[in-house]
Amino acid sequence: MIPKSCPRQSEVAAQVLRGQWPAGCVEDLRQHVNGCRACGELVLVMLAFQSARAQAVSGPAPVSAGVLWWRAQLRRRNAAVERIARPILGAQIFALVVTIAIAAILLVAQARNVPRWFSWLTQPGQSPGLHFEDLWSSALAMPVWGLMLLVFGLAAVAVLGGFVLFSDRPRQ
């Protein structure tokens, strides 16, 4: 189907949209519409739709604007909170991974000392762990990196604890 348009269609449409059809338009245009099939159809359809629209616009008022405003604000706020919380979750996961890694390194590094730590249980009388002076000197003799690992491990646990406490706080 090839659309057969009339050059006067836009003129007719403008008259109907302005509410000037048929009384407000020139006789020449009225006669044209009577004889032109395309323009006749256009007027018929436009009048039907314009009348339906006018009736709908004068109908009962829809829901209050304030309710929609409030709903939009709530939805936008929730989306923003979600967006902001995403990096915090990433930091928590990172802190957990770092803590586990440090704990694993500490365990591996100190594994050979484990029998010595528990030796006082089997030989309580001879264990150096029972004498403070001996314990202190053995701690000083430890390699520096071991001590640093211990400090970093404790710090990571503290950071993780902080994040856990933060995330457990009830959201307002």
Binding site: A56, V57, W69, R76, A80
Partner: peptide, 28 residues
């Protein structure tokens, strides 16, 4: 930050006016 992000591009009064003019045609 969430509070700032929740601020809408129109203020309440402007929206109420826009809504009043456009709601019925949109519903129709």
């Amino acid at each position: 930050e969430a509070q700032r992000a929740a601020e809408l591009p129109m203020d309440n009064d402007a929206f109420a006016g826009f809504y009043e003019r456009s709601a019925r045609p949109l519903r129709a």
